[in-house]
Design a protein around this nucleic acid. Structure first.
Lengths: 339, 339
DNA sequence: TTAACAAATGTAAGCGCTTTCATTATAACA
DNA sequence: TGTTATAATGAAAGCGCTTACATTTGTTAA
């Protein structure tokens, strides 16, 4: 493939001039610019991005680290990040951390050794302290789904507390009073915040919060089943179960069906995330939308603006609203209907 | 960050020697090797992969193009490709083609201009001819999910005919005789092959193939619903519907439930792909496993072997077996049970 | 001891660009 | 017309490596 010398020769200019028309920064006389462009297209010339990177000390690579690459949660986000960054001429390198602290750190080091200009991190096993340290090593990065006070400007999150609040509130509005909650692991901040929102909704409605009606799961569907079994065994049965995510809600649905419980008549179920399969469960799952894709796009814009000094016509927002997506798995409780 | 000169200086050797210990190809005396390694770790040195790429004319990048990045189908595959290639020290650049011919071609050009050493293509809108041409432009690539005779050695596919055969055969074995089929768009080879397998299973069982019992959908769930409506309206109703993929099978389930049909008692449904949500539908979906993830891994091995001349201890296979995954949506037909 | 050869290491060119600084062409004005 | 300011272009160094080739060092055998 042709290189910049050959273009320069063909256009009868120096390679510096060719470089100028490639980058469009410095000004070049219109006539010579046309000559150069003609030579470039005649030769089918494409700048060698590797040489550009080496000479300019900018790789134009953005590294993305997600905790799980397989599974539906991040795929929309990856798609929107990829689109946004590719439009800006950046390359996206994607790695998976497999929800493991060691592997996630390795992946970060891998991305750094790839000379990424910036990273987007969607992780769940790495401590805040590590990330704060990372920010001091002058590694540029954005964090999705995780709020770290010291570096809040580069964190992009959904309002988890509000999401938990809305989920429980929507159950209360249907008339539910006995509401179980299956939480994600409470060492995770998002799980804690969602639970806190749940409590606030109860309190606001004058319903006493009873810790016995909270089961702490691990965000996987099996713990949804286990949580259902636990809540089902309690003296006073729940008429609704709010879950910290959709996977666990799915587990509840499976468990409840196995127990011969009619949904939503006898039991309403609410999830969180609004994953793609929420509409395929039976009954279709009412859930809190997690705008993970918007967060990814915003993180990409933040990087374009902060790292690449591009003017993106966007206001950078760090916190995203949660919204209810109501489907069939939420209805009025049976004792309410029978009045 | 330190560069190779500083390492060389600290170790008291020339930079060529440092380069040799980095790459491990040429031999270096054990003593000097240790000195160099000591210097590297003391300086926290990491080779600059961009400079390596430029000097060696190998980018160590592999580009992946998938037709849809959002959605569950490819995410497992991406995960396994990424793991395999990262272990081999390659960087993975992922792009989406959005099932659009122009965009897919643009994406290929983008990946080429990224100087990828090789591509892995999972696409559905680009013609065979284009890919054959591409192979002549000495672009190295593997194709997943698509069989092209001229370049068969670099194509990795599931045995679609066998998959379609197995799906229908499993229905026949349960006693179904009136079996509807909802096909993917027949301009796609995989859809045609799956349908052909369906026909073979019927023929083998002595059931006459009736084209009226085939509905041609577009692989999306809405066309599953439409296909159900069509098959349901026929004089003699089907007791089982075999679908070209899981999305359409999901559409059938939704449509059938809306029509008040009991599944699987009154209607069995079989999908293809065994997507992650197959176990969450109700009834849980019997499907043909599409080993997309294994195919991705194999394509990665093929690239490591063919492009990077690495010895991978693997036999490269191009065609993968389809396997039935039986769940609740397939049962004996009602008239059979009542005997 | 020394010739002959192999192993280890060094030298230097080059990969294809960007960018600083120097130079030349052009324009503006007295 | 000559002078100066300004715009356009060119020359050349360097980004951090790899690698062909040259040189030095070490080893073996006569």
């Amino acid at each position: 493939m042709a290189n910049i010398y050959q273009v320069a020769e063909r256009a009868g200019v120096s390679l510096a001039t060719v470089s100028r028309v490639i980058n469009g920064k410095a000004k070049v006389a219109e006539r010579t610019k046309l000559r150069v462009e003609k030579a470039m297209s005649e030769l089918g010339y494409r700048p060698n991005s590797i040489a550009q990177s080496l000479a300019s000390a900018t790789s134009n690579r953005v590294g993305i680290l997600v905790s799980v690459l397989d599974g539906p949660f991040f795929s929309n986000m990856l798609a929107s990040i990829e689109t946004t960054l590719r439009d800006a001429g950046k390359h996206v390198i994607i790695t998976a951390g497999h929800s493991d602290e060691v592997k996630e750190k390795e992946a970060i080091e891998f991305l750094i050794s790839c000379r990424c200009d910036a990273l987007i991190l969607c992780i769940d096993s790495i401590s805040d302290d590590y990330l704060v340290d990372l920010s001091k090593r002058n590694v540029q990065f954005a964090v999705i789904n995780h709020q770290i006070p010291q570096i809040a400007d580069r964190c992009f999150i959904v309002d988890n507390e509000q999401g938990g609040y809305l989920a429980t509130k929507s159950a209360i509005e249907k008339g539910h009073k006995q509401i179980g909650y299956i939480s994600g692991p409470t060492y995770k901040e998002d799980a804690r915040l969602r639970l806190r929102g749940h409590q606030r909704a109860l309190q606001e409605a004058g319903i006493k919060f009873d810790p016995d009606y909270v089961y702490c799961g691990d965000y996987h569907d099996s713990s949804g089943e286990a949580g259902f079994a636990y809540l089902h065994s309690l003296e006073k049965a729940c008429t609704a179960i709010v879950c910290g995510n959709d996977d666990m809600a799915t587990g509840v649905i499976l468990g409840a069906r196995r127990a011969g419980i009619d949904m939503p008549q006898q039991l309403s179920v609410i999830g969180f995330d609004d994953l793609i399969f929420a509409r395929y469960t039976y009954p279709s799952l009412t859930s809190v939308e997690n705008p993970i894709s918007d967060m990814g796009t915003m993180a990409a814009y933040w990087i374009l603006q902060t790292v690449y000094k591009q003017r993106v016509g966007k206001v950078i927002e760090n916190m995203f609203e949660a919204k209810m997506v109501v489907r069939d798995s939420l209805s009025e409780p049976i004792y309410h209907q029978s009045i």
